[in-house]
Design a protein around this nucleic acid. Structure first.
Length: 364
DNA sequence: AAAACGTGGGA
DNA sequence: TTCCCAAGTTT
């Protein structure tokens, strides 16, 4: 029954998409590799943000084979600034697995492809429906919003049950002859018309059969619980320098973060959270003592920047420091670099916020 | 199930 | 400024 009633809506959606689909870079290539890269990049990330990264990435790593043979550092450098860096690590790992476990061919079987690191329900369905025409509905944030309004589903979309309901509904109406276009059309509708705050219902191909519109509930659907407030920390960082004149003069100490976990594999300056009541000046000395086994002298404040991560916020207090006593001892990969060499290493966005001041300091 | 996991843009 | 949001996955 649902199937028959939805037929007209699916056709209407298809016509709308034919007229309004954006000309996006990844829509010009339908091979699995290109679609896969785009879907990973688009995860929780805006289209406008992704476009330049996608172009650069495919220029740098034109094939899966090239990606698999690249170093993780090169991969992270290409990903720098995009965020959610586990995506990059997983994609790199997956590329290597395709080489070793699948003879270099990206598996077109759902279960096999889904088993690769970083490939979840969404990406597996998206890549294989768009790239291979498999009838697998995608359920992303857009689709969730569109279907909840269209069908009047009031389940909290943060819950797994909502995703399951929506997927089940879509599985019954996804056209077997063009599942990829249907999936793209649903997402495009969410991105261009069925907007979160002010949906443009007058332009919507589903307006004649939309539950939320008919009942005046577009503002109430989908139901989404609020996220709890995030903690805020003060962090003190040490830009440790070697004075010019001495051997290796004018260099800065940097270290690599552990590969797993927050900002894994990226580079940073030593430092850490201020304890309750502890001044940043004190924290920076303590952290260098604990992490590196050295006494430093803070010569002055370089910058103070704020940054919001996905699950907490920080005030960064950046100090220009000099080694006073001891030799740095650490198990982590590290380097003494010139200011003009910093750009060779991938750094988190929060660090980039004070790079201008850093350059200013070292070039004057 | 719920929390970890980045970043930039718009209201 | 603050909050929410964007083509999710992993643990």
């Amino acid at each position: 029954m649902t199937h028959v009633l939805s037929q007209a809506a699916v056709s209407s959606l298809g016509r709308w998409f034919a007229r309004h689909a954006r000309d996006l870079p990844w829509r010009r290539r339908r091979d699995l590799y290109a679609v896969w890269i785009s879907e990973v990049m688009l995860q929780q990330t805006r289209v406008e943000t992704v476009i330049p990264y996608y172009r650069d990435f495919l220029r740098r790593f034109p094939t899966l084979k090239r990606l698999a043979s690249a170093s993780l550092q090169d991969m992270l450098k290409a990903w720098e600034g995009l965020g959610y860096y586990s995506r990059a690590r997983n994609l790199w790992q997956a590329a290597r697995l395709v080489q070793t476990e699948f003879r270099g061919r990206i598996p077109a079987d759902f279960s096999e492809f889904r088993s690769l690191p970083g490939v979840g329900e969404y990406i597996a369905a998206a890549v294989l429906s768009i790239g291979r025409g498999l009838a697998l509905p995608v359920v992303d944030g857009n689709v969730l919003r569109v279907v909840c309004r269209w069908q009047g589903i009031a389940t909290d979309i943060r819950l797994a049950a909502a995703k399951k309901n929506v997927r089940q509904f879509l599985q019954g109406i996804i056209p077997a002859d063009s599942p990829g276009r249907f999936n793209e059309a649903m997402m495009e509708l969410g991105a261009l018309v069925c907007l979160p705050r002010v949906p443009l219902c007058g332009q919507c191909p589903l307006r004649r059969c939309c539950f939320a519109l008919r009942h005046g509930k577009t503002g109430l659907l989908p139901v989404k619980s609020r996220k709890r407030p995030v903690p805020e920390y003060h962090v003190a960082l040490a830009v440790i320098t070697r004075e010019s004149g001495e051997k290796g003069g004018g260099r800065i100490f940097i270290q690599q973060r552990p590969e797993l976990g927050h900002l894994g594999g990226l580079w940073e300056f030593p430092g850490g959270k201020c304890r309750p009541g502890e001044k940043p000046e004190a924290a920076v000395g303590r952290e260098c003592r604990e992490e590196l086994g050295v006494e430093i002298a803070a010569l002055g404040r370089l910058a103070e920047v704020r940054h919001a991560y996905s699950h907490f916020k920080v005030h960064l207090h950046v100090f220009i420091c000099r080694l006073r006593r001891g030799r740095i001892r650490t198990d982590r990969p590290h380097a003494w670099v010139r200011i003009d060499e910093l750009q060779q290493y991938p750094f988190p966005g929060a660090n980039h916020k004070f790079f201008p001041q850093l350059k200013e300091y070292f070039n004057t």
